[in-house]
Design a protein around this nucleic acid. Structure first.
Lengths: 293, 293
DNA sequence: GGAGTGATGTGAATTAACGCACAGAGAGAA
DNA sequence: TTCTCTCTGTGCGTTAATTCACATCACTCC
């Protein structure tokens, strides 16, 4: 039973009773209908219709086909309605991925967005590996670093995340604060684990702080922040995040070269969907409060 | 949701995961598969797949389609199995039609045939109007008279039904038997109702018996036979049928000119089916006992 | 790092499907 | 009857779909 179109043709002939009538409904020539029926019967080896000058009457096999194809037509019709309708509604899954360091910003936004659309399930993916939009792994990604240039991705600037060095009040009480970069030699630092990182502030630390002075390393920014809070040393944290926790002291004001630009990335195929657009609008609105000035 | 073939294509892509793999299964070129998907998405206005170099992964809409089309494929597969299988089995309905006067011969045969095939339902149609094989109203017809020449019907000789004149013993006791055709003027006859009948014995009676002497007319041969049994007069009954009832006396031996040839007629499209062939063989075997010599 | 493999994607050539036109056959009405 | 209307059926020309060929890309294995 290949050639489902022939089944559809036979279904309409059985339903309507004449080749001409079915041809009108299907929008094809009646010769096409006759050929479809003939081909289908040839393949099945069974007559589906009794032919006479007043029309076609289904045999038992034809009646069986009518029943099955009727159900199929109904299901396809419902499917088309669902699929077309779903293009304009915000429901199902919304999958967002970002580097882990942005969870404190994104999670509240995602929670509020979900509250606006009860039919929506939010999945927030973070992890070591990059989740790939072109494989359909996520609808929206928040990426850091230089502007991504994947050909099938739609990229737009999100906001510029400011970083600077912080220390805990307990650390300052014990070791004081470095006045100049020359003082770094007598301080302890908390840095990233990955030597190949491209984050500007991390590279700055690699260049300006002796490696031996970086006594705590982690790939997770939240772990680094906890280390800073614990007084283990001086480390980078985003200004926004530092403002939310108690007991952190800015070692020096943010430098423009430490700013990490963030990008909103969506896959081309999904970018125009109502769901993605609604989320992007929501996210941009909420992120206005995060802009430096 | 027209073009069910495109749905089938999309279903196989969603199931297999690659355009090339689906093309192999479908036995078409992969370019055809891509065009089907593109056309279907264009018509629905929704992307069904995420395209990437390693294959196609279905979106939620694509997954929905996969689920529905999976059910469709199963149902079509079962349907094809049923239809093809049914071509070689004796089940469902067997519809036989004949003139009413043959019921005493056909009904026992039909009952025995049904007993051989428990899955079979037998319908035996008799009536004033001719049931038309070309409209699929019956599988097999037993027709009387000159050989039918419908173009789409398969006609084969069945057997030659002998008729002759009978009277009841009570009638003979009261009125005696006509010795010659000249005696008919003093006898009462039972004849057919339809003046346009083409049955040879009925036309013979019209030609050889004065109309006024035909005092009982009926279109139903069984009613005529009951009238003869009741002693109402002399009338034609088939030799086979007369042998089954008590108290009938042959007025004269059967004449060759009174013989009614019977034909087995089937529609061309149904003639080759196992069901019809099985019944025809069964019927011919049983009818051997009915032949005059 | 480079060749090899297996996938998608696209324009040109080919083929199969389609529409057109007309013939034939019943059914119903004048 | 004869006329008309409707529906099926078929050969032929055309269009649209398919195949073919080649380009491209991503990943893997030497």
């Amino acid at each position: 039973m290949e050639h489902w179109d022939e089944v559809r043709t036979a279904y309409n002939v059985a339903r309507i009773g004449t080749v001409s009538g079915a041809a009108d409904v299907l929008g094809v020539h009646h010769a096409t209908v006759i050929r479809h029926i003939d081909a289908l019967e040839e393949r099945l080896g069974v007559k589906l219709f009794q032919r006479h000058a007043r029309g076609y009457t289904p045999t038992e096999a034809g009646s069986d086909l009518l029943r099955v194809a009727q159900a199929t037509a109904d299901q396809f019709s419902q499917l088309a309605g669902r699929i077309k309708g779903r293009g304009n509604e915000v429901s199902g899954e919304l999958v967002v991925t970002s580097i882990g360091g942005l969870s404190h910003l994104l999670v509240p936004v995602l929670a509020d967005f979900q509250e606006d659309f009860p039919g929506l399930t939010v999945r927030y993916l973070t992890g070591d590996r990059l989740f790939r939009l072109e494989y359909g792994e996520a609808h929206v990604a928040v990426r850091a670093g230089s502007v991504p240039d994947q050909p099938d991705n739609v990229v737009q600037p999100f906001f510029r995340q400011e970083f600077t060095l912080y220390a805990s009040e307990s650390y300052v009480a014990r070791h004081g604060l470095p006045k100049t970069e020359g003082d770094f030699i007598s301080h302890r630092f908390i840095g990233v684990d990955d030597p190949k990182t491209r984050a500007p502030f991390a590279r700055w630390m690699q260049d300006n702080v002796p490696a031996d002075n970086i006594i705590f390393r982690s790939g997770d920014v939240h772990a680094q922040r906890r280390a800073i809070q614990s007084g283990a040393g001086i480390g980078f944290t985003s200004v926004l995040q530092a403002a939310e926790v108690e007991g952190l002291v800015q070692v020096m004001p943010p430098k423009p070269e430490w700013v990490a630009p963030l990008w909103l990335v969506t896959h081309m195929d999904l970018h125009r969907t109502t769901k993605v657009q609604a989320f992007l609008a929501f996210l941009k609105d909420r992120s206005k409060a995060w802009q430096p000035e």
